[in-house]
Design a binder for these strands. Sequence first.
DNA 1: TGAACTGTACTATTTGTGTTAGTACAGTTA
DNA 2: TAACTGTACTAACACAAATAGTACAGTTCA
Lengths: 122, 122
Amino acid sequence: MLIRIDYQDARPIYEQITAGFEKLILSGVLEPDEQLPSVRGLAVELSTNPNTVQKAYAALERNGFIYTVKGRGNFVSGNVSLINERKRSMREQIEAILKEADELGIDRKELLEGLGGKGKND
Amino acid sequence: MLIRIDYQDARPIYEQITAGFEKLILSGVLEPDEQLPSVRGLAVELSTNPNTVQKAYAALERNGFIYTVKGRGNFVSGNVSLINERKRSMREQIEAILKEADELGIDRKELLEGLGGKGKND
DNA sequence: TGAACTGTACTATTTGTGTTAGTACAGTTA
DNA sequence: TAACTGTACTAACACAAATAGTACAGTTCA
């Protein structure tokens, strides 16, 4: 069970599937050219519909996480820039929060206190 | 025009209204006991429906941002703890992003580089 | 008192998204 | 050929967001 659906999660199923595979691919659990479960197979496994899985896979391909070979299956792409794009996206998210903090008169330093590292300084 | 609706924004209208007033209240633009636009008045102003505004106001009251007096209107509450709750919520959001970074093997320090303050250190 | 405001509470309808279901077609593998 | 793979449709259902309309209750003020 590589992927697990959480029905408490507000996100739609197809989005949980894409997010799940994105994490598995970016963290290296799934290696380049490794095959993903088939659309129909994963649908059975997750007790969901092939169309829902298909929608998730289409998004993964659109964003460069996987490539598709018709008749063979879906495979992890060896796209190295993905991790950098994710890093940039995370910085954007944090920057948006800090911008809101600015507008509310909350000090950035105070907000980030103790979030820096794990046992180094701070 | 205190509030502006962005139809590019994926968030529903009622949520944009609550978010807008929350920011105005937390930043002090709207002061305690100051009156908000009437449900019907704001609906006309935003070219939306009174029910939609009502839904937004109900949420604001539920979360302690405003109080309602039937027949008179809605007013900003003088709840001082709201800003601290917001601060806590922001830290949670950032912490969630950093936790994901950990799982992807991205260094927290590197991610937070240069986001600290405005012209002090970092 | 009565008119004109305020909020509140419904019901009905429309629209869009997510999901399910079913069918059909095309390419690959053994 | 049989059994896999992905892809492309259409139809139907559920749900949330939003709109529309009506009705009722409390406040303000002339």
